[in-house]
Structure formats: C-alpha cells, structure tokens
Design a protein around this nucleic acid. Structure first.
Lengths: 341, 341
DNA sequence: TTGAAAGCGCTAACAC
DNA sequence: GTGTTAGCGCTTTCAA
C-alpha cells in the first residue's frame, strides 16, 4: 500500500530513445540548441519525449557542461523597497535569459558572508551578484580562485578589480547639497546609513564637498544605519537640541520615511515648512502622497539590466576584465524641500 | 597570455584522495554526515581537503542522491511588502536548514505559471512553494506526477489535496465587519483585490457574512486587484458619489495605503473622522505613523515557519498526506477606524 | 546525420 | 573502517 507511489523513476533520455527507436545521443542532440539533426529525427524524438513527458535534467547537463544556469544572489535583507524591487527585476531578467536566481541571505555580520559564499560555490553557480554586502579580501580571492564571475550591485570601490554597477553617489550627494542650499536651507543635517557601505561614504562625501564648496558645514549628524527604527531614534536625538536643523539629508528613502514620521507625528513639525527632508533612491513609495518625498533617483531598472548584462557577458567571456558601470542619479523634486524664498 | 587563467579545473574528491593517500570513497565518507570513518582518516582527509580548498560538488551529490537541496519558490511580485517580508524569512529559514531558494517569477497570466513550473522541474528541485499564485488543474497533476512536494503559501482551497498554509481569512473578514459595525460605521464599502485569489474571496465572504449577520449590506464595492495604482482609481470612483461610505474595508494593506492617500490628499477627507479605513495583513509599514493603519494581522513568521516545516517534512516523508494549516488572524487596533460614539 | 563509448564528480552497495 | 565498483542522466568526442 504504502511505498506504492514511491520510486516514481524520472524519465531519462534512454527511455525516450528506446521508445523512438534511436540512440540516446540522438535524443540529447534534439534537445541541444545547436544540434545537427534531421527533421525526421527531431520529429520522432520530440513525439516520444512528449508522450513520456521527458525534459532534460539540468543537473546532469550542468555536470558535464559545467553550466548550471544558476546565478547566486547574496543580499542582506529586503526591508528596503529598493532591494525588493531590484530583486524582482533581477529575477525577471535572468529568467528571460534562461537563468535563475538562487538566493543567499547574508547579514552584515563578520564572517557570515564568507560562510555563505562557500555554500554558494558548492552549487557551482555560474555567477554571483552581491547586493549591498561587503566582501572581505580573502573572500574576493576565494571567488577569483573559484573563477566565478561576480558583479557587485549598488556598491563601488570596495574592490576596484571586481565588476560593479552603481550610480554616482558622490555626484548625487553633491547635488543634494546644492539643491538644499539653493532652496535656502542653512542649518543642514545628515542622517547617515551604515558607514561600511560605499554608498553611504560616497553620498556623504559628495554632500560634504558640496556644502564646503559653498562655504558651509554640516549642522548636525546622526547615524541610522539604514534601518527604519534606528533612523527614528536618530531623528529624535538630532531634534532634541535648542536650535534645530532646517533641513536633513537622509542617506536613503527607507530611512527618510521614518524621519518624516517622527518629525511630523512625534515632534509636530511641518515638512517642508519647518524642516526640509531629502532622501536617496527614489523607491516607488517615495511618490506616495503621504510622503511625496524629494529624493535622488537611482535608476534601478537600468542598473539591474546592466548588472545582468555584465554578469552574463563575463560568464560568456570569463577573461574579460572587470568593469564598473556608473549611472547618473538626479534630484527628483517633490514636496519635502521648501521652495527658495 | 589569454587563456592562461582559463580551465581552472575544479578540485575533486580524487585530488584530495591522491594527496591524502586514501581512496576516493574515503573522502566522500568524510564529507558525509553519517559516515563511518576513523578519526585518523577524518584528519588526514580534512587536511588534504583544506590544503586543496576542496568542497563537495552539490550538483554531483544531487545527481546520485536525488537531493538537490534546492527549493523552488513561485511568486508573482514583491510590490507588496507582505511578500518581500515572507520571502526574506523563507530564505533565511531554509538556509538554516541547509536548503536554498531558487526563485521563479510567474505573473498571474494564463499559461505563465505552467511554463515556469516546467522549467523549475528541470532543476530537480526537492520541493515547491507557491506564494499567492494560482495553479491550474493540469499543473497540479504534473506536479503530482513529478512527485514533488508542494505547499501553497497564503492560498487556500484552490486544491484541497495540496498542502497549504494560510490564515483564516473568512474569520478575519468577519472580524472586520464586526469591528466596523461596533465602531458605529454604517455605510460600509469594500475595495477588493484580485477575485482569482482565495484570500480575496475568503476575506470578502467572511466580511459580507458578518455584515449580513448584523442585518447590514455592503454600501459600495470597487476592485483594486491588489495593486497600488488600481486601488487609487477604485477609491476615486467609489467616492465620486453624493453620499459616501463612512468606512472602507480594503482587501490588503498594500492597497489600503493607496486608499488613504487618495482620501486624504486628493479628496481632502480625514481618516478616521470622515471615513474609517481598515486593511489586511499587518505589514511592517502599517504601523508607520503616517498610516497607523488598523488592520488584520497575518502572522507571517509563523506562517513561513509552518510552510518550511510542512515542506521539509513532506520531502522527508513523501507519502504523508497533504496538510492545510490555518492560522488565526486578529484585528490590530490602530488609528484609522473611528472610535464608537 | 547518427551511434558507441567515455566520463562529469559524486554516493552507495559490496567485499574485505 | 576502508577500498572497489557501478552507476546518477547527461554531453561530447570519435567513427561510421
């Protein structure tokens, strides 16, 4: 009774061959893109295959060709809509190219990423995409040793020898400073993300440079580490002083929403009348009317497409050199920064 | 010059065996959980393996054991935070159990899911989780034929013979009706999601039943199909009439945010003073102060854990029968429904 | 164009 | 406890 439906053997190319009365290699050829098979053969084999419900085993294919058609994605979390959107696009584009994404979560904890990379190598993935996670130096070497193409999404400069796609965060940060200054803001503060992220460092560097170029300095600074809750407390700390900032550049949209909520609902401040807020990323939610957040756009779709192109190109030609693609971001004017007087 | 770094052959168990001066199967045993190897052997092999940087090839393992340690996830999109959160938890839990998630995007388009399932079968995944996507009958059969365990996350009743994890959407919908009525709302409307979803049907059925039980009927109804933008237009349509609803039950939080934005910012209505809003899911954003949305909680973490348990159990014991787990949801009182007079 | 044979890297009997 | 052997399901020479 019990084991009756067990051991339902998968149908192999041999089964198809037998039914079609041809050799097993003929079957294989029919299912290979650049075959060399007669129409008659194709017909016979396809018919038998359909009848049996046969489909080639990708694992077995991978064994011999070395091509698993799997790409690994290493990511820390999806709390930030920027990542969930990027992930969706990524999976979609890869799928359209007949690849699929195997996801590995890696908290930004020492050693965690390393362990995860080991694991992912075991699957013989053809390529690796990291989304905003840091790579140790040993790890970078390990990946190079394994000879697996990698592209870092939304990270720059950590390893100039690795391929990467990002937007120009320095210029973006600078644009924020210019925009705020030009809007008449003077007590300008910054709520930073995680300092380990190149995005954070670049945005802030550009921002500070912009301020300096106009003869200004930062009025206040707190760290929100890119998390909603930490951004909330950072805001409360920042606004607990006698004279308050009149503008705050928040290192990403995800935190900016938290900042605005504290400002409006805890502190009873008006945005932008009392304080201007500007974010970074332009996630879909930024245009929702409750926030209507002025921010710097990162062109996610184009960045994702570029990531996929880069990775697949390197898979096809592994000896090509690393490339770093940088997209322009630009300020998207909405309603959270006051108009110039 | 060029091909110099190509053909970096991967190190195999044979290489390790040679270096350690033992048989290849000894190497295999050392890396098998329930081995039967002497400590001396373990030491020798591990040393050689470390030296060579050897790790077993999961694809090869999968070939012979039939266990790929890959689980497929079929999902439509990540626009709704409920799914990105669920996905993150899922990937994390599976990873902790030494499995990984291969993602397949399947728009709710006729035939799309079917094609995707075919593809995923090719990878010889050990199990399949569908998140809010519908399965055709042929597909269900195909999956059963392939003998691969499946559990449907956040879907019920589509196929009573398939395992599934959901929350009790009928009771949840009914609780919404009770809560609204008890709060003094009388012109109660509904903004529905996609009618193809069991969640939608259940929530609405329970809701309507609750209304009816108290001798009330639905005041208005529009369809938002679970999308932000469609929920916006649905709201505008709904409130274009002379006498307006005084409460609206929105089929999920994701749409509820859009509804609230239109109400407040386009229509100049106050929530909850002019109209009460209640959602469903209790996504993290629901507690953000801009919305502070009253909603029905779906216990995502527990639902995800249950999904993983169910799937892994069925992988371990494929003959076990399908199970449907249903969690209780409950109304989370926040600020978008008016207090009783 | 087609078939025979080898082998990808590994696990699982089976002997010893 | 350890080595030998036979495959898992496929692609890819190599001959015919």
């Amino acid at each position: 009774m019990k084991g009756q439906l067990r051991n339902k053997r998968t149908v192999t190319s041999y089964d198809v061959a037998r039914l079609a009365g041809v050799s097993q290699s003929a079957v294989s050829r029919v299912f290979s893109p650049d075959a060399s098979v007669s129409d008659a053969m194709t017909r016979r084999v396809r018919e038998a295959a359909d009848q049996l419900g046969y489909r080639p085993n990708r694992l077995a294919q991978a064994m011999i060709t070395g091509r698993s058609r799997i790409v690994a994605l290493v990511v820390a979390h999806f709390e930030n809509q920027f990542f969930s959107e990027a992930f969706e696009r990524l999976a979609l584009e890869l799928q359209a190219r007949n690849y699929h994404v195997l996801t590995f979560m890696a908290a930004d904890v020492a050693g965690k990423t390393d362990q995860v990379i080991e694991e992912l190598l075991d699957y013989r993935v053809e390529g690796l995409i990291t989304a905003s996670v840091g790579l140790s130096n040993e790890l970078t070497r390990a990946i190079n040793d394994a000879d697996i193409p990698i592209v870092m999404f939304n990270r720059s400069q950590d390893h100039p020898d690795l391929s990467g796609v990002s937007s120009d965060n320095v210029t973006g940060g600078r644009a924020v400073a210019d925009y705020l200054l030009q809007s008449g803001c003077r007590r300008i503060a910054h709520i930073a993300g995680w300092h380990g992220a190149s995005t954070q460092r670049d945005r802030e560097a550009g921002f500070l440079a912009g301020l300096a170029a106009a003869g200004h300095t930062l009025f206040a600074r707190e760290v929100g580490d890119f998390h909603h809750d930490q951004a909330e407390s950072a805001t409360r700390r920042m606004f607990a002083t006698a004279t308050r900032p009149d503008a705050v550049f928040v290192a990403n949209d995800h935190m900016a929403f938290a900042v605005m909520d504290v400002l409006r609902h805890d502190l009873g401040l008006r945005v932008p009348e009392d304080v201007s807020v500007i974010g970074y990323d332009d996630v879909p939610m930024a245009r929702w009317k409750s926030y209507n957040l002025t921010t710097v756009r990162q062109p996610v779709r184009r960045m994702v497409s570029a990531t996929v192109d880069l990775l697949l190109d390197r898979i096809a030609a592994p000896d090509a050199e690393a490339q770093r693609l940088v997209f322009e971001g630009q300020v998207v004017e909405r309603g959270t920064v006051r108009r110039p007087d």
